[in-house]
Write a protein that binds this DNA or RNA. Structure first.
Length: 511
RNA sequence: AGGCUCGUAGCUCAAUCGGUGGCAGCACCGGCCUUUUAAGCCGGGGGAUGAGGGUUCGAGUCCCUCCGGGCCUACCA
């Protein structure tokens, strides 16, 4: 244990000896929050110059002590609660009236440490420097902190001192990060608000929020390596879901007009700035709609999120150095037109060989198993994707890449699919869902062939899903959004770890 | 998985070419101060430099292995 930890444990014992319970059981009734008092405290100056305090004259606050400034027989502290910080003012003669000054000299000045939770009662006032503060009349320990917090300081100009910045420590001890870094807290508040906005919007559309299995006997609906586990009682393998698409469609078959699920997906793949092994997805499926309808809905949903999260209620969000306009309509660009625009290449009429030659010249990595559709996808990823900064619907993909998507109503060889790109990254993927069971079986067979050729991403046949389609699924539009990536986008973060409370990490040696 | 890079006190950081780890700031301990706010002033303590090995008269610094992090690449709808 470090010197400071030993001292705090000593303080703990002394508190108990003094008859103070450092961890009292009874509730402390909070009647006010720091930020509210700071924002709303009012006083008037009378004609004779004296001040009349108008509100917050009997308040009870609770939180952590984040700074103390002793000034002789008076003392200032900063109290941090869930709303923010406020200055406290204490005087010896009030804490320890009369001869017995133990409470002041020993308890408040010595045994109280930064990070301790306290409850205080008192009244709001303004100091002579004009800072709204609480004059403390009663003081109570609520919980003793036994480790020194890496408290971050800021001066009047906003300069930060002693920042707590080491990402490893911040992620491993997110509780500390959240305590000392208010901007981190702000990111997660925004994330929560974003999800709340999404739910409210989908509920308004009349969709039903549902839950589908996370443990699945067949991992379908996407192309990714799953986490595998084992059920003991049934003695069978189970997979953590990589997607929930096929289950949500089964619910559409079952007669729900619209369903959505917000939940975790699990993919046993590499980790980087935009990938965490478990991540959150929103998927929703609506009967009798098509992908054009989904584009309109997406625009409206994103505009709402932007209004909810932007500082001014507007539709623009600053992500890094780029201002992104979320008010619709967004540009709608076919995949072929997009490639033509950014490369001059006419992929529509090009042969597989010509595409292969182009990739070779451009230094785009390819391998012999790739068909035309895959080559187009590679060219797009390499040459186009990073240009799509403002929200753009990329529409109409080659059929080979989209085994669950309905064939295009008028363009042979394509499917009714779009992906939404913002800030150079894909954030959503949508289809007019394939509901022809015969076609779907053929597509699965094509996937099996791809798998046989060595494509590890190929989807597996799901006979029960086909059976469901054979019973009949209405025409349906469906879309999936990566919630974490949306959170990154709307909070301007570069790393997925900054929008996950507890990103995946290797274990520590010792704690 | 590969490449690069980082790991020094509770936090943020110094340490020349390999030459005794810093009166460093904050935090901590003792003292002073009845309106301070990165409070201030006086005094003080705190480190097996991520772990292990090697080279050297001498290693925080160079080499190797391991652990953990970051960035990039690969993988990944």
């Amino acid at each position: 244990m470090t010197e400071q930890e030993l001292l705090r444990r000593e303080s703990l014992h002394k508190l108990r000896e003094t008859g103070i319970d450092p961890y009292p059981a009874e509730m402390f009734e909070v009647t006010a929050f720091a930020a509210d008092i700071v924002a709303n405290y009012r006083e008037e100056v009378l004609e004779d110059g004296t001040k009349n305090r108008l509100n917050y004259q009997e308040v009870a606050l609770a939180g952590r002590i984040m700074a103390t400034r002793e000034a002789g027989k008076a003392m200032f502290m900063n109290l941090q609660d869930s709303s923010g910080r406020i200055q406290l003012y204490l005087r010896r003669e009030e804490v320890s009236p009369g001869e017995d000054t133990v409470l002041w000299d020993q308890v408040v000045k010595k045994l109280l440490d930064l990070g301790d939770y306290v409850g205080i009662k008192g009244f709001a006032f303004k100091t002579k420097t004009g800072e709204v503060s609480v004059h403390v009349q009663e003081f109570k320990f609520l919980s003793k902190s036994l480790r020194p917090l890496p408290i971050v300081k800021r001066d009047a100009e906003g300069n930060v001192f002693d920042a707590f910045t080491d990402p490893e420590q911040r992620y491993r001890m997110r509780y500390v990060d959240l305590t000392v870094n208010p901007e981190v807290r702000e990111i997660f508040l925004k994330r929560s608000k974003m999800i709340k906005t999404i739910r409210a919007y989908l509920d308004e559309l009349g969709l039903l929020e549902v839950e589908t299995p996370i443990l699945q006997p067949i991992h379908g609906g996407a192309a990714a390596r799953p986490f595998k586990t084992h059920h003991n009682a049934l003695d069978m393998p189970l997979f953590l879901r990589i997607a929930n698409e096929l289950y949500l469609k089964r619910l559409i078959v079952g007669g729900f007009d619209g369903v959505y699920e917000l939940g975790k997906m699990f993919r046993n793949e590499g980790m980087d700035r935009t990938h965490n092994p478990e991540f959150s997805m929103l998927e929703f499926y609506v009967a009798y709609k098509d992908y054009f309808w989904l584009m309109d809905v997406t625009e409206q949903m994103f505009e709402r999120i932007a209004r909810a999260l932007s500082a001014d209620g507007g539709t623009k969000i600053l992500s890094g150095d780029t201002e992104i306009e979320f008010a619709g309509p967004y540009r709608r660009l076919t995949m072929y037109d997009a490639i033509k625009e950014y490369t001059g290449l006419a992929v529509e009429t090009a042969t597989e060989e010509q595409l292969r030659a182009y990739c070779l010249v451009q230094g785009i990595e390819i391998d012999p198993t790739m068909g035309k559709a895959k080559l187009i996808d590679e060219i797009f990823g390499e040459k186009v994707e990073h240009h799509l900064i403002q929200p753009t619907f990329l529409i109409d993909y080659p059929v080979e890449m989209s085994p669950l998507t309905k064939k295009h109503r008028s363009k042979p060889g394509l499917v009714e699919r779009f992906e939404l790109f913002v800030n150079g990254k894909e954030v959503g993927n949508a289809y007019s869902e394939l509901n022809d069971p015969i076609d779907q079986r053929e597509r699965f067979k094509d996937q099996l062939e791809l798998a046989a050729r060595g494509d590890e991403e190929a989807m597996v046949m799901d006979e029960d899903f086909l059976r469901a389609l054979e019973y009949g699924m209405p025409p349906t539009a469906g879309i999936g959004f990566g919630i974490d990536r949306l959170a990154m986008l709307f909070t301007g973060q570069r790393s997925i770890q900054e929008v996950l409370f507890f990103p995946q990490m290797k274990p520590e040696k010792t704690v």
